[in-house]
Structures are given as C-alpha cells and as structure tokens.
C-alpha cells in the first residue's frame, strides 16, 4: 500500500521558517523508505506562494486552505481543519516543525484522532513499516525511541535536526484547494507585537550568547544618576551585551542568553537558550561568560561547533566546546569582532 506522509507547513504572516521545509525533506525520506507520497498542508490567507515552494522542496501534493478566518493562527480552527484532513487522507504520519504553535496544534490533533504525539523528534527511521522517532528527554541527558500503535503518528521535528532539502524548480506536484467552513472560534487575535529586529534564534546558523558574566566588567563605572545596586548591575550587563551584539552583527548571528542572564533581568526572555527557553542547533554557537549549567546545555549542546569564552577554566561549558578561550570576555569579544571584521572584509 502506498503510504501518505502529511506535513503541516507552519507559517507566520506568509513566511514559512526553514524548519517547515526541513520537515518536508524528512517526509520525503520517509516516503522513499515506505514507498509513499508527501502531502503538504498549508493554512492561512494569501499563502498560495508557499504551495509552489512546498512542491519545489519535495511535496507531491499540496492541500491549500485559504480563508480570512485562517489569517491569524488560532489553535482551534487550525486543529479542526488538520484533524478533518487527516481523517480523510489517513496518513501514516503527520509531521510538523517544532514551534510553540505547532506543539499546541499537534497535541490537539492527537486528541481528536486519539493518537500519539512525539514532540521535538531529532531523528526518524523506519522499522518493519513503522516509524521510530528519537527524541531527547530529561533536558537532553537521555534519548528515547518512540513508536505509535495508532495512525497517524503525530510528530514535531526539532529545527535544524533534519537537513533542509534543495529546492528544485522542475519538480511537479498538484495543488488542491480545500473547502473551509469555520465555526465561530472561541478566541480572536486583537493585536500583534513585533519582536525586536534581529535574526530569529530557532533558524539562526550562528548564535552569540551571553551569560551572567556579561555584567562583571570591573572597569566600567555606571553613570552617577544610577545609584541602585541592581540597576548598576543591569547597566553593566547592557554594556556587556552591546559587545555581544556587535560580534553577532559581524557574523549575521542571533543573540542568545543563558537563563541566569535572563533571570537577572539583563535581557528579555525571548533570547533565552536552554531547556526552559529555546532549543537551538546552529552551525556555530559562541558562548560568552556562560558557565554551562545543565539547563543551558540542554538548549545548545547539539550545535555543530561551540566556542566558549570564560574566565573560569573549570567551567562545564568547555566540556562541550570545540574551541575555548580562558579569558576576559570584555577584552576577547571586541578583539574577535575586529579580527573577524578584517577577515570577512566587513
């Protein structure tokens, strides 16, 4: 029997993150092993352009649902539609990229279909015609392999854990429009706040992160109008993060932070890398003034190359690092920014 693999293409404001195409690529691999086809599901308003992209990245078929009521992501109408399409198509698996939204959606659809959901898978294989998914548990200290005895196996795939396929403009596929009838949703989106400009952590190929150490520059004197001790500390940290941002800018990198830095109020939570923040897997991760607590390592240990800059030679971060500098980040980071600027011709 030809199996169908469904992929939910997560998109926001008409833009699909690379992880959506990574999921299409992973579905392509599964389809090859199972002898089946890949169907991409795209929901939104004005998202037709994504359908062609999905085909170029490997989908055989696209189910496109466009409606004004689908413009903003809301879990209930999206889950209703996804569950309906999965019931009609009876795929063996439903893949999605891991994001806050898709975790929610995956959980809901799994309830509707009374099936199992494996969040944040990092590897997929086929054994005896069934899908076996590997995912980290206990903050990445352990891995588990999961199988699901009901169909479809709902899976979200960790960003950058699967290769992004090459787009092939000559690939052919069909686009079918899906009829949409949406009941009054229980919630409405009444506003939107853009994140501060910069590279998104989840998709970033390079990340420069700062930890508690960014506030420890003794050579800085806060301006006299700041006399509260905590505010002085935050002011120092902001000067430290300015150095990190400059390095990030040269590398086209996103700015990350440890939980300690976020808890201390140095930088907003949206920058937090770790078990309770974002889980990232860039090609290059530069950790500045981060000791490497287990909760931070959980969020970045799968990065391809890790560079650690820390005063303390015993810091656990060096155990996962490929390159280490034992030194003062306030001297090393600006010097590195300058050295890279020269070499990269910026």
């Amino acid at each position: 029997m030809a199996e169908k693999i469904y992929v939910y293409v997560d998109q926001e404001l008409g833009h699909a993150p690379p992880a959506s195409w990574e999921a299409v690529g992973a579905a392509r691999t599964l389809a090859a092993e199972l002898g089946g086809s890949v169907t991409a599901l795209i929901f939104g308003e004005g998202v037709e352009a994504l359908a062609q992209q999905a085909i170029e990245f490997g989908a055989d078929e696209v189910l496109l649902a466009e409606d004004a009521a689908l413009k903003d992501f809301r879990p209930e109408p999206y889950a209703d539609l996804l569950a309906r399409l999965a019931r009609e198509g009876e795929p063996i698996a439903l893949l999605m990229p891991t994001s806050g939204r898709s975790r929610e959606l995956a959980g809901m659809v799994a309830v509707d279909l009374e099936t199992g959901v494996t969040p944040d898978a990092i590897a997929l294989e086929v054994q005896d015609g069934a899908i076996v998914a590997t995912r980290p548990i206990y903050a990445g200290k352990l891995l588990t392999k999961e199988t699901c005895r009901t169909r479809p196996h709902v899976l979200t795939l960790r960003s950058r854990a699967f290769p992004k396929p090459e787009a092939d403009a000559s690939r052919q596929g069909t686009v079918s429009r899906v009829e949409v009838s949406i009941e009054a949703a229980p919630s409405e989106v009444v506003g939107y706040k853009e994140a501060e400009a910069g590279v998104s952590l989840s998709d970033a190929a390079v990340i420069v992160s700062g930890g508690r150490g960014v506030a420890n520059n003794p050579s800085l004197t806060p301006p006299p109008e700041i006399n509260d001790e905590k505010e002085q500390e935050i002011w120092r940290a902001q000067q430290g993060f300015a150095l990190i941002r400059e390095l990030a800018e040269v590398l086209g990198a996103a700015v990350g932070a440890s939980r300690a830095a976020v808890d201390a109020g140095y930088i907003p939570y949206s920058h937090q890398v770790g078990q309770t923040g974002k889980v990232v897997s860039p090609d290059l991760y530069i950790a500045c003034g981060i000791s490497g607590a287990i909760q931070h390592l959980a969020g970045m240990r799968t990065s391809k190359t890790i560079v650690a800059i820390n005063k303390d030679p015993e810091a656990p971060i060096f155990k996962v690092a490929r390159f280490g500098v034992v030194g003062d980040l306030f001297q090393i980071v600006p010097a590195l920014t300058k050295a890279l600027k020269e070499r990269l011709g910026k």
């Binding site: 809301r74 806050g100 706040k193």
Partner: peptide, 11 residues
C-alpha cells in the same frame, strides 16, 4: 509568545 513576536488574544 510566538517566534516572531506576540499575539494579543481575547478569549
């Protein structure tokens, strides 16, 4: 919280 910002939702 979303990846690209925040939605304000009335429910």
């Amino acid at each position: 919280m979303l990846d690209s910002g925040r939605q304000v939702v009335r429910s």
